[in-house]
Amino acid sequence: MSDSTFEARPKQQHHFDLNFGKSIMALPGGEDLYRCIQCGTCSSTCPLSAYMDHTPRRIIAMTRAGLKDDVLASNTIWLCSSCYSCTVACPKQIRITDVMYSLKRRAIQTRRFSVGPVAALARAFIASVLRTGRSNESRIIVRTWLSTQPFELVRQAWLGLRLWLKGRLSLRRHRMTGSARDIPKLLRNLHEPPTFNRKA
C-alpha cells in the first residue's frame, strides 16, 4: 500500500452541511426526522438492507448530521423498493419511505446517479408518461437496459420472447385516447418539469 492510500479520518465541522439535513426535513414526510432515536428498527425490517452500503438508519443519521455527499452517493436510496416496512415499524412514526423518496429526488436534482439502471428506468418512465400518458413497460425496460446494462437484454431475450408469445409484452405503444397532451400540460402547470430528461 502506498502512502497515498491513507487519509485522515476524523471529520471536521466543515465536512457537515447542516442545511442539507434541514432541507430534507422541510419536505413532506421529513418533518419528523428530528425525533429519530437511531433504534435501527427500520434497517432490521428492510428486506433490502443487506444489499445496501449504508443501512436506512445510518442514512438518516448521516442526513441529519449533514454528510450530503456520502448520502447522495450511497446505493441505499436507489435500492429502496418503497415497501413501507420501515414506515410502519418505526416507533417514532417517521415516514422513512418518504425520506428515501426525498433523497432520491435530491440525488436526481444534483445529478448523482450512483446506481445507473434505476435512474435510467426513471428517465425512461418519465419520458413514456410525458409522451403517451401511459407507461409502456416493455419499451421502458428495454430502453433502460440499452443505456446501462445491454447484456441484460441478451440474458432476458428468451423470457421476453416467451412473454411476447403469451401476449404479455406490449411492443406497441399504449396510448390515452386523445388527451395525452393534457399530461405535459398538467405537469408543467405545477412547476418546472423534471430537469433530467437530457442524458446524464
Binding site: 433504534c39 434497517s43 432490521s44 443501512t55 438508519r57
Partner: peptide, 12 residues
Amino acid sequence: VRVEDTLLGMAR
C-alpha cells in the same frame, strides 16, 4: 431475531 446491529452498522 431480525435486527440491525447499529454499532456494527449491519443487519443481522
